[in-house]
Design a binder for these strands. Structure first.
Length: 304
DNA sequence: AAGACGGGGGT
DNA sequence: ACCCCAGTCTT
């Protein structure tokens, strides 16, 4: 194969194949979709919140915490106007706390612009919204036809294409959109959620259950076996010795302390005084905390 | 291209 | 004790 051919777009999929897959997948979803609470809401703000929460986070946990968060901050405007400290408190248990900061900044930018945009490109301009989240919001809330590609959909698409070599993210997106392009209005969001459900329950990474897959008669990868990825032989640093552990613990201290703040000095677990100081300073620079002087810190507030 | 970034649940 | 997870941003 020439270099030009290798770099070119992959062969388009057969339209009949796409239609059969789309029909079978949506039918399976209609019959077996899990009753997630977040699926009861398709307004742009609710979808944005749950999709940001879902970044690198299991949907089962998102489904519980999104409901509480949306009760606390019911509208785009309420989130934009909230104390950042309150947003971080409501984020407890979700991790990746910088997502909460970005989400609030995104809400503020959207309010200033008159509401959430509906196009993938405009959504991508908002902080914390990347290729996946922009397409998820556009498809689920606005009827967009581009398919949001996460790790699940990348696997489904790669198997449906029957790729013998790994596909680039770009190739996966192009193929995913081929399916989206043949759907009826407003179906791409359901297609994506169907594919993610199927990937989690059936089209698993290591041991797919092809025998119970609704796409088995169309899938070129049906029955194939997949080797486990080689595991790194390096011994893992114990979690309590990592900066992530320390950051989580310091943030929890600030959540407990409230507006008056907490004394953040000295050691924490296996982290010495210097490590604690460096970590809290980094958190301040990221906007996760603010200094009150004399080693006192609190979550970000507007004023006194 | 590689790291940083959390925390809960499954196996 | 691992492993993984509806990714994104920074360096």
């Amino acid at each position: 194969m020439t270099k030009a051919a290798r770099g070119a777009a992959a062969q388009p999929l057969d339209r009949e194949f796409i239609h059969k897959v789309n029909r079978a997948l949506l039918a399976w979803y209609a019959a077996t979709a899990r009753p997630l609470k977040i699926r009861e809401r398709s307004d742009p703000y609710s979808v944005l919140v749950s999709e940001v929460m879902a970044q690198q986070t299991q949907i089962s946990r998102v489904d519980q915490l999104a409901a509480v968060f949306l009760e606390r901050f019911p509208t785009l405007e309420s989130l934009a106007a909230a104390e950042t400290a309150d947003v971080l408190v409501a984020w407890k248990g979700l991790g990746y706390n910088r997502r909460a900061l970005a989400l609030q900044r995104a809400a503020a930018a959207a309010v200033a612009a008159g509401g959430l945009p509906s196009s993938v490109d405009a959504l991508m301009e908002l902080p914390g919204i990347g290729p996946y989240t922009a397409r998820a919001v556009a498809a689920i809330a606005f009827g967009g036809r581009e398919i949001p590609v996460d790790v699940n959909i990348a696997r489904i698409v790669a198997r449906l294409v029957g790729a013998d070599a790994p596909l680039s993210p770009r190739e996966v997106q192009v193929h995913a959109n081929e399916f989206g392009g043949e759907l009826a209005d407003g179906e791409a969001g359901a297609w994506a959620q169907a594919a993610m459900d199927l990937a989690a329950s059936t089209c698993r990474a290591a041991a797919p259950k092809c025998g119970e897959c609704p796409l088995r008669e169309y899938c070129p990868s049906a029955g194939r076996t997949f080797a486990k990825v080689p595991r790194s032989s390096e011994p893992r640093t114990p979690f309590t010795k990592t900066a992530r552990w320390l950051r989580g613990r310091l943030l929890d201290e600030l959540r407990e302390a409230g507006r008056a703040g907490a004394q953040v000095a000295g050691e924490r677990g296996e982290h010495n005084e210097a490590a604690v100081a460096a970590t809290i300073n980094k958190m301040v620079s990221e906007g996760l905390a603010e200094s009150l002087g004399r080693d006192r810190y609190r979550l970000p507030h507007r004023g006194d």
